[in-house]
Nucleic acid binder design. Sequence first.
DNA 1: GTGGCACATCTAGTATGGCAGTGCGTACAA
DNA 2: TTGTACGCACTGCCATACTAGATGTGCCAC
Lengths: 244, 244
Amino acid sequence: MAPSLPGEPTPSAVRPPSNRELAYEHIRELIVRGDEPPGALLSENDLALRLDLSRTPVREALLLLAQEGLVDVRPQRGSYVSLIDPDMVRQAQFIREAIEIASLEACVAKWTPELGAEVEGILAAQDACSTPEEFYPLDEHFHRTLLGIAGHDFAWAAVQSAKGHLDRARYLGLSGYRSIAEYAADHRRLHDAIASGSLDTAQEELRSHLRFVLDDLDQIQTARPELFRVPRGPERRPARPARR
Amino acid sequence: MAPSLPGEPTPSAVRPPSNRELAYEHIRELIVRGDEPPGALLSENDLALRLDLSRTPVREALLLLAQEGLVDVRPQRGSYVSLIDPDMVRQAQFIREAIEIASLEACVAKWTPELGAEVEGILAAQDACSTPEEFYPLDEHFHRTLLGIAGHDFAWAAVQSAKGHLDRARYLGLSGYRSIAEYAADHRRLHDAIASGSLDTAQEELRSHLRFVLDDLDQIQTARPELFRVPRGPERRPARPARR
DNA sequence: GTGGCACATCTAGTATGGCAGTGCGTACAA
DNA sequence: TTGTACGCACTGCCATACTAGATGTGCCAC
């Protein structure tokens, strides 16, 4: 686990993270890792108890997560982990692809051997990974670094906020449908194309790399249909818990 | 039975807007329209009094605006309207351009005469505008409609959240540096290119249209430097009292 | 046995009070 | 005159109390 990622926009270095940030990170982790599956109830009161905080920071964290699309707040009813909406995933993928592909032009233009060495380091670390848990942060780091080289570091925030649903699908996808080694190989080919200055090749490599998420998505949807919002038909509630 | 159709993220049609949404819209309007200029102090207490609400919805609105980059919350110090950061505006422009340009492909592919008629209606309304206040929502409507035709309606949220700084610059830009008529003419040329199925032309039209914001930006920065974050030099603080 | 209404009990939304950190004005010392 | 220490007043952060609305449950009339 990286203690401090480079380029972090967090002023946490001097200021301890607020309870809201703590709650946000914690809850987001629960959702992305699948510990709280899509459809699960996330009660403000319950979370406040579990995290040993008051409702206010928990509530504000849920507000941000709802903005991101990971949580579905239904007033006076409850807050739920949002179901994975295939259409929304596809659109998130579109956004990500649009931004990352467009950034490659500047990335190739600004490429230097020093930057190449930095990226090589990430690639080497990826090759040493054996579990998705290890690979996942490195994958983020790789893509984020490329954006940073292009001078579009700020765009990462936009990508990240859009790819909430993508993250979950990706996490599940890394769990077996496509191997870590294949993802790592994609990254290396992309790096080679950038380093050799062939923009078109790089764009094609990145495009197919990013689109594999969609293939994974189909696989996951077939295997775990209960995690997905049904495209047609109500299915408002999967089952009657019949509490009490 | 599902009373509300899934797919539309806004339940506002059936539910009255919450105080938080009211506060958000109101404060955002203040900032984008320039009523509260960059650097102005936005006190939770003060806003709560002015909007006749409690501090909670105001605070949550400020949280969302901070996430969007329009407000700069400094803990235990105050919340301020963020200064316009030229680099951030450029990156927001990049994001927007990447998404809208990429969406044109699907837009051209899915174009129909019926959709053309709808867009024509917007164009006609734009031609009838005489003030930026009238034009501004129609401009949003135009671009959003194109995204919707491409089937990337969801991407609008990403664009919007990224273009906070852009909005302000754009609003100022509409106030004189480039005329409404020129913007409207851009839109019409873009429409014609899409309708005739020439993707490349459409992309070029849109690209130059969107990049005019950057030209405006330079004009505005020259005219009103106090609204901008200084690009070079420390200026961390005017002076260091170095108490204690 | 069935349909409908009322209540008990959840929920999130909102209001408010206390707390802790920071900047700035002021007064004092060199 | 200049530099420094100190305290007040202000800020946002967090906790708690209260409100209104939605839902499941069970009683009761039929």
